[in-house]
Amino acid sequence: MKIEMILYASLGKMAPDKMAGTPFQLELDEGALVRHAVKKLNIPDTFPLIIFVNGRHSRLDGILKEGDRLALFPPIAGG
């Protein structure tokens, strides 16, 4: 299945075009978890992440489905 993947801030360097915030497609097995997408992107699974699936918070064990939008952020804050 294919999902839409977006990496932000310092994670942008893990994206194919090294660009933060540019969506790209990621091919995963049916029933894949967020963890599998993270692994495929070579992000260590101990790295603290803010995870959104379709704009809602998720976790490494969140289940993905075709067409989902998965966005990952490193720890960030501002205000």
Partner: peptide, 16 residues
């Protein structure tokens, strides 16, 4: 985080 991108790093996360 704050040093690298400043407070405006929030734009993308709030948008998401």
């Amino acid at each position: 985080g704050l040093a690298a991108y400043g407070t405006n790093v929030l734009t993308n996360v709030l948008n998401e």
